[in-house]
Write a protein that binds this DNA or RNA. Structure first.
Lengths: 196, 196
DNA sequence: CCCACTATTGACATTTGTGTCAGTAAAACT
DNA sequence: AGTTTTACTGACACAAATGTCAATAGTGGG
């Protein structure tokens, strides 16, 4: 009656653990991402995770990379899927804000910074950078690369802040939950109009 | 030769602990704000802090309130000191960004959110809200309160994001460390010009 | 089929943060 | 002065997270 112990190939097991850790991060915050909690989600022990990732820091490091891949894959896919509608500021803004909010990028990034582990952030930053360059390729012809980067910087920072305290702050100020999105959209629209 | 044990009045001791905790938060991040670490800074034991604050959560709660007071006192003082120069967007932007960066407001707020303790954030949000209302009183005559609130929301979110990942992101994008500040300033300037 | 490889585990050790408690001593009050 | 109050401490207990290690048992390759 005892279920036979399943033995997955290491890559598969690692990926399952990283996905479990990612969901745990989004649902319950960084403090909840412990070896025992992650292991419990995939019916393993915490010793198993130590076997695969070497240490708790190793899991966090790989989680950062995994999250960067996930976030950027989501954005890149959405961008390519609706290439025609790319010019819509609303779409770009929604993409960025959702990435940081629902995908947990903001939570992880801030957590990494706060715990002093800045190295783990670089894959995320670099992936975002690469994505920005890809998007900027369309605009670079009639706008400076600098301007695109500045707009992106402002956009990411607002998305980051919004993912953390956006709802609480907007509510306290008597604004709608999407006030930050609206403001970012207007900002982006005006920035794009500048070159017309 | 043994120094006599000093016994401070409770209020004085509490304030010393909160200041030590605040500096610890800014220097080494939220993870470093433990009972033992804070107690060590003021030459006390962790049991002493439990006596004054009841629990570790109590210290965090009071730290949030203390930080909100500190941050807002700094801003309010600077604003009142140079009432004449209040109209300068650069000044307002610098004030907000410094408050979140150097005063540690961003670090604490994000930490509170991430650990699920949202209640502790409300004093900060409410104090900021009150400050916004005070500033908005000057502008409200020829602008809508809504518009002022929206600008403030965008400003705070950018300051928050900048305090966390601003430097790393700007550097990765090949921009200067003050790129976010510059962008926020330009944004605020254009928002103010709208009514002229 | 047999064997080397390794994913997986349980038991143990360590560290760290938090909390309790009785006792001590320095203030404050009478 | 004596008494009460309480800031402060050391020692202990407890829980949770991380890490080590030997042993077990699937899995693939010979």
């Amino acid at each position: 009656m005892t279920e036979p112990r399943r033995r997955l190939p290491p890559e598969e097991s690692r990926l399952a653990a990283l996905e479990a850790a990612r969901l745990l991060l989004i649902e319950a915050g960084p403090q909840a991402v412990t070896l025992k909690a992650v292991a419990g989600r995939i019916d393993r022990t915490h010793a198993n995770l130590l076997h695969h990732f070497g240490s708790a820091a190793g899991l966090q490091r790989d989680l950062a990379a995994h999250l960067a891949r996930t976030v950027c894959a989501t954005i890149a896919e959405a961008v390519r899927a609706s290439r025609a509608g790319l010019g819509s500021p609303r779409e770009v803004v929604d993409l960025a804000f959702d990435a940081f909010d629902k995908e947990g990028a903001g939570a992880l990034a801030s957590w990494m910074i706060l715990t002093g582990n800045e190295d783990a952030l670089t894959p995320i930053v670099e992936t975002i950078h690469a994505l920005v360059d890809e998007i900027a390729a369309d605009e670079a012809s009639h706008r400076g690369n600098m301007a695109v980067h500045e707009d992106t910087l402002a956009l990411v920072l607002m998305a980051m802040g919004d993912a953390l305290i956006g709802k609480a702050l907007a509510r306290s100020l008597g604004l709608s939950d999407t006030a930050a999105r609206d403001r970012a959209q207007a900002m982006l629209e005006r920035a794009l109009e500048r070159v017309d």
